[in-house]
Simulated assay, not measured.
Amino acid sequence: MDRLKTARALALLTPALLMAGALGSQYLGGLYPCEMCHWQRWPHYAAIPLALLAILLRGQAIGRLFLALAALAILTSGAIGAFHAGVEYGWWEGLTSCSRVADTGGNVDDMLRNLMTAPVIRCDQAQWTLAGISLAGFNAIFSIGAAFTIFGLMMKARKA
């Protein structure tokens, strides 16, 4: 088993699938993201090209560096997700209370109308849960688990 190949695949698939789920739930499911949801997305957006570079530069030291950076980005998203889940569960207070999602295109009247009709999404209330776990909680579980798995595979490959 090629551990680095598995690690690279996991580094690409984890953020790609989590972002597909997040964007799908937003655009197909009508679950608008709060500000903290967006914070979780940015590290995944960074992890995807880093993982692609790791795949393209496999066999080189720089490829391992990009793989480690992708894993670190995935871990960062998971940490933000854990913080956000804690805010949703009332374990601690968040940094923001809510955000608005509004289309800023068009003329001034269109922008004002979009702003006034945009849903208010609170960061401290989960819009969806499964078995008591929010989307932020699932991001934390999957991202942190994947990041540690990637780092573990890298360490095992190094010893082999």
Rank of each mutant, 00 (worst) to 15 (best):
121 I>F: 09
122 R>Y: 09
149 T>L: 12
134 S>H: 07
152 G>W: 14
150 I>C: 12
112 L>M: 14
130 L>K: 07
139 N>W: 11
114 N>T: 08
105 G>R: 15
136 A>I: 03
110 D>T: 06
123 C>V: 05
112 L>W: 14
123 C>N: 13
126 A>D: 04
144 I>G: 10
121 I>Q: 12
153 L>G: 10
121 I>R: 12
139 N>S: 14
142 F>S: 05
160 A>W: 00
122 R>K: 08
114 N>I: 08
159 K>M: 08
137 G>F: 04
116 M>C: 11
139 N>Y: 10
135 L>A: 14
153 L>F: 12
120 V>G: 09
143 S>D: 14
145 G>P: 04
110 D>Y: 01
118 A>D: 02
124 D>H: 07
138 F>R: 06
147 A>W: 03
133 I>M: 08
130 L>S: 12
151 F>E: 02
132 G>K: 05
110 D>Q: 09
133 I>T: 11
150 I>Y: 06
116 M>Y: 13
110 D>L: 07
128 W>Q: 11
155 M>Q: 15
111 M>W: 10
113 R>D: 10
148 F>N: 01
143 S>A: 14
111 M>C: 00
114 N>R: 09
151 F>P: 01
141 I>D: 04
123 C>D: 14
144 I>K: 09
107 N>T: 01
124 D>A: 08
151 F>A: 07
106 G>V: 10
